[in-house]
Design a protein around this nucleic acid. Structure first.
Lengths: 203, 203
DNA sequence: AACTATTTTAAACAGTTGTTTAAATTATTT
DNA sequence: AAATAATTTAAACAACTGTTTAAAATAGTT
């Protein structure tokens, strides 16, 4: 049937890069076609429309985006251990994919944007048993009384924002890329202590 | 001379709203013209080009964006007091302008985007004397040994991200706008304690 | 009043946008 | 080898993009 399935894959790969770095509104189908070495008609031949191709990319990105959390929460570890490992893994992952948080948040905010099926994030997190583990830890007095939503927001804020704000911080603080890299590496240790100390205070 | 200076002002006001909510790439000059009740030619008559109008809006937004920090740091207060007031004021400000952080960060990340003169942010912050106050507090042992850049990043992460991520969080956590509002109000208190406790630990 | 400068308008411009068409090419099946 | 199906191409489409033009309308000056 298919002469060369790598055409479809090439377009998808190029679309991923272009969409994530420029956003839906910031690029054209012709740009994606050129980046993949194909022509415009092929983009719509394989994916029907710019919007449908985008939805594909977005949902995959969302999957990657929430993967680490689901994976780490699902392990058999204490909460402070999970927290430390999660932050470490998030910083690792985002060092390789620094554009992802801004992409997700942007496109989620775009009017008439993605339908955002949520891809069952809440359910996946729920199935890890993290909620029960938190409630239990709170009853034992090992964890601060904090809504799980606020805990999530604290984690995401301190993991995502440093990468999203790279260019802004470089300009505001007048630092170059090397200094930023140093600052980020140091920042990870601050964030870890900050969150662990706050969420699991020693009496 | 000017028949009606409100024309220029109307366009500027409409441009501000449209640019901030849709971004430079996400809107057209015709959309701005229509939003202001004027026509396309007038936009370029008063502002020469979409880019120049955008630069005007962006720089003003950047000014608003960094205002609170400069203002609070310039007061005659202790560092923990400044921190508490700053967070309170940031949450107040961002409740009224929730789209601003995402706008600034997005446009700062856009390729061939704004020249971003920085508007002397670093100098303005420096002139408040906050750096010296931090060093002094650290020498007295009242403040944790932390680079001022990392301190800044901690503050911005925990103030900006909650507002930028509103739609994402609503979807991920399956909550409505009222629940989000409650969560944000609560979050402010968490962030305040989190940061004050970390930066100014009691021995 | 006539004249000048400023503001507003409608129309046009060249280029780009997402998408579709129909023909050409290639692969697969018979 | 012939017939069928899948893939690729170049070209076209209508709508929209930022910007400019020249004429019309208005305001200000003499």
């Amino acid at each position: 049937m298919k002469k060369d399935n790598s055409t479809e894959e090439k377009i998808k790969q190029a679309a991923k890069e272009v969409f994530i770095s420029k956003g839906f509104a910031g690029c054209s189908t012709r740009e994606i076609a050129k980046a993949s070495g194909m022509n415009v008609a092929l983009v719509n031949y394989y994916f029907r429309s710019k919007s449908q191709l985008f939805a594909l990319i977005f949902n995959a990105a969302m999957e990657d985006f929430t993967n680490t959390m689901v994976e780490v929460f699902g392990r058999d570890l204490s909460l402070p251990e999970k927290m430390r490992i999660l932050i470490d893994k998030e910083y690792d992952f985002l060092s390789k994919h620094p554009e992802l948080p801004a992409f997700i948040i942007n496109e989620t905010n775009r009017e008439s944007g993605i339908s955002f099926t949520n891809a069952g994030f809440f359910e996946k997190i729920s199935q890890t048993g993290i909620f029960e583990q938190c409630i239990e830890a709170q009853q034992k007095g090992e964890m601060r009384e904090i809504d799980i939503r606020n805990m999530t927001l604290l984690i995401l804020s301190n993991c995502h924002y440093p990468f999203m704000s790279k260019n802004m911080m470089k300009s505001m603080l007048k630092i170059d890329s090397n200094q930023w890299k140093e600052a980020i590496e140091l920042h990870k240790t601050h964030v870890t202590e900050l969150l662990v100390n706050y969420l699991f205070p020693k009496k």
